[in-house]
């Protein structure tokens, strides 16, 4: 199962290596990882999307991440109310004649054409990964020359409905 894990980390050299090295060593599959600064100086946020077999492995990955001294907080936010976005840049073959046709495809996705050249168009899309996948599929017939994706970034919505029991793995006491 794919899980979204949000990490708050101390912004120190090597912290990304600590996290990815740990996941690799313990045989966890990373689908994507994104990192950036937060509202607090010296603190960064990482969003990991990992593929784990079961609950036990999920618990293990969060506990191991928590053990890292530079990791301040680990939460599995997959089942919570979250906002989650990824950005992708897609370069499609074709001249500017194609532009209106492509616009027709990308409009419902609220994507934009951000660069046009003699033989290619570059589209920018933001959204959940499945939405990006869907657009890529629709653009494929035109000939995709290049794709760059940022990986998912996410955090909790302002309001959390009290539906399912929320699990935090920061500490089992």
């Amino acid at each position: 199962m794919k899980r979204i894990i949000s990490l708050t980390v101390q912004d120190r050299s090597g912290v990304l290596n600590r996290v990815t090295g740990l996941l690799q060593r313990r045989q966890f599959n990373i689908s994507s990882i994104s990192v950036g600064p937060t509202e607090t100086e010296g603190i960064s946020k990482m969003t990991l999307v990992v593929e784990v077999e079961d609950e036990q492995r999920l618990e293990q990955v969060t506990k191991q991440l928590n053990k890292q001294i530079d990791v301040l907080k680990v939460s599995d936010i997959t089942d919570k109310a979250i906002v989650a976005r990824e950005l992708a840049l897609i370069k499609v073959a074709g001249s500017s004649q194609l532009r209106s046709e492509i616009n027709g495809i990308i409009d419902p996705f609220r994507a934009l054409v951000i660069d046009v050249s003699k033989d290619s168009l570059t589209i920018q899309i933001t959204g959940r990964p499945d939405k990006i996948d869907a657009l890529i599929d629709l653009l494929r017939p035109y000939g995709i020359k290049e794709i760059a994706r940022t990986g998912l970034t996410a955090f909790l919505r302002g309001h959390q409905p009290q539906v399912n029991e929320l699990t935090t793995y920061s500490q089992i006491k």
């Binding site: 618990e59 191991q64 928590n66 053990k67 006491k173």
Partner: peptide, 15 residues
């Protein structure tokens, strides 16, 4: 805590 439940399912974890 990472040792608890790592290899053997544990019903009473005590950190």
């Amino acid at each position: 805590p990472a040792e608890i439940g790592k290899n053997v399912p544990t019903q009473i974890p005590i950190v």
